[in-house]
Amino acid sequence: MKFNIPAFSSEQVEAAKAQYGAKCLKILEVFPDEDSEKPVEFLIKKPSPSLVYLLSSKEMENNIEKSSAAMISNCVLAGDEDLLNNDASVFTEIVEKIGSLTKSARSSLKKV
């Protein structure tokens, strides 16, 4: 599966802020290999509740290819399209980071 995303730019960041709000957005810096000194940036948004429901559905259960594609399609807003489509280590890193965003909220319980 090939993914079509625009190149990372400040214009893409501003457009995404206007559409989703800054709290839902993250800039993910990926170092394509161990010798990379400069990271490649991807603009991602936190998964929505509907994506979480989709990923936990019977259709996605035990189907890594479909669930990974759903995460990339729904959460990667901009970045290096060629790298995303052709470098398995970059693809895997992005999928793992998106998955970790579903668990990034904190909470606490207090007595009434």
Rank of each mutant, 00 (worst) to 15 (best):
E14H: 05
D82M: 08
S48C: 05
A22L: 10
I94R: 14
T102Q: 13
K66P: 04
E34A: 06
E59K: 11
F31I: 02
E11N: 09
L25A: 06
L101Y: 09
P47S: 10
S68N: 14
A70L: 05
E34Y: 03
E61F: 09
S56A: 11
L25Q: 01
R106Q: 06
I5D: 01
V76D: 09
L28R: 04
E96V: 09
Q12I: 02
S50L: 12
F91M: 13
S48D: 13
K111H: 07
L101V: 13
N74V: 03
S57E: 05
E29A: 14
Q12P: 05
A22H: 08
E93H: 12
E37H: 08
L84N: 02
S10P: 00
N86A: 03
L54C: 07
L77S: 14
Y53A: 14
A7N: 05
L83W: 03
G99E: 11
S56R: 10
N74I: 04
K110R: 08
G79A: 14
S36R: 06
L51M: 06
Q19N: 03
V40Q: 10
V90F: 09
P39S: 15
G79L: 10
T102F: 01
T102C: 10
C75L: 11
S108P: 00
L25N: 08
K110S: 14
M60Q: 08
E41N: 15
V95Y: 02
P47G: 14
L25K: 03
M71R: 13
M71F: 01
E37C: 06
L55F: 02
V76I: 15
S50W: 08
A105D: 12
K111I: 12
R106Y: 03
E81C: 10
F8Y: 12
Y53L: 11
S104C: 09
F42W: 07
K111W: 06
L55T: 04
V30W: 07
A78D: 12
L43Q: 12
D87G: 03
P6G: 10
A69E: 12
E81N: 00
S57N: 04
S68D: 15
